[in-house]
Design a protein around this nucleic acid. Structure first.
Lengths: 144, 144
DNA sequence: TGCAAACCCCAGTGGAGAACCGGAGTATAA
DNA sequence: TTATACTCCGGTTCTCCACTGGGGTTTGCA
């Protein structure tokens, strides 16, 4: 029920990439990692997953790096979390003969999960960027 | 993001206790465990937690057992899951200086979590019982 | 053409927590 | 008084998350 470090790292990385989408300049793993305090060898794996999911593109070789595959307002938090966390494929083969009780419980749990996913589907990377900027404005006002 | 065996066991046990609330007759751990296929020594721990949370009462000694502490329509799934899973106290002391990025991410995640919890708060044990009965009716109709 | 900078793949490890088991003790109905 | 139940507390096994490491391959640039 709580956010895994894995998903948080992925979101932070994509958040870091968002402002660079317009210019088309790639960011390197090291830069993202040091900027957001993420173990770089670990971030590497996450970016590979995001690449296979079609959320980022990579440029190999010297002067390479990563960039968003599409506009930051066309990537939802659900896109990110679901591909990182690996939803789906939860058929649970051990549960050969589910009882009526477990079925009902799973059904309600599915509704709760659905409600959470709807929130994530409605929030894009661009929304996150703007909320962060707005928050920083508030901080500055308090600082003055 | 997925339902733990722990919570599912607890819900199954309370579901088993629900029909017996009216009569006031206690159910024993062994009975619940064998009925719902739960390791009995493990269920014992869960029921102890539920008792401390005030969701069930225990009768010690011969002919003892467990019974619901209040009406099954006055116990929500949120009551159960939150006490079993131990929500709250997630201040995360390691996060001494949260960045604006992590703050925004946590905020949205909190909204998603809140949406899921609302679903659980609206569903009572009695709702579960009735949905199970309704489902069984459907099964019977298909059987005929 | 060489070489360094970057991505790419795969395999392992350490620690934490979940799920479960066991034993000794205590309360209580019969 | 005794059998039946709950109660407390500790250990054990197993899985998974977060992370690390050792190899590659690709590519811009001097």
């Amino acid at each position: 029920m709580d956010l895994s470090a894995k998903s948080e790292y992925a979101l932070l990385a994509l958040l870091e990439l968002s402002p660079h989408f317009a210019s088309g300049e790639p960011l390197q793993i090291r830069q993202i990692a040091s900027q957001q305090n993420i173990p770089d060898r670990y971030l590497e794996q996450l970016l590979a997953t995001l690449r296979r999911a079609g959320l980022v593109k990579s440029l190999r070789g010297a002067r390479g790096g990563y960039l968003l595959a599409r506009d930051p307002w066309k990537i939802t938090l659900y896109d990110v979390v679901s591909c990182i966390e690996g939803f789906e494929a939860q058929t649970d083969p051990a549960q050969s003969s589910p009882t009526p009780e477990t079925l009902v419980i799973q059904a309600v749990w599915g509704e709760a999960r659905q409600a959470a996913e709807t929130v994530l589907q409605k929030c894009t990377l661009q929304d996150l960027v703007e909320r962060r900027n707005a928050q920083q404005q508030v901080d500055i006002m308090y600082y003055i």
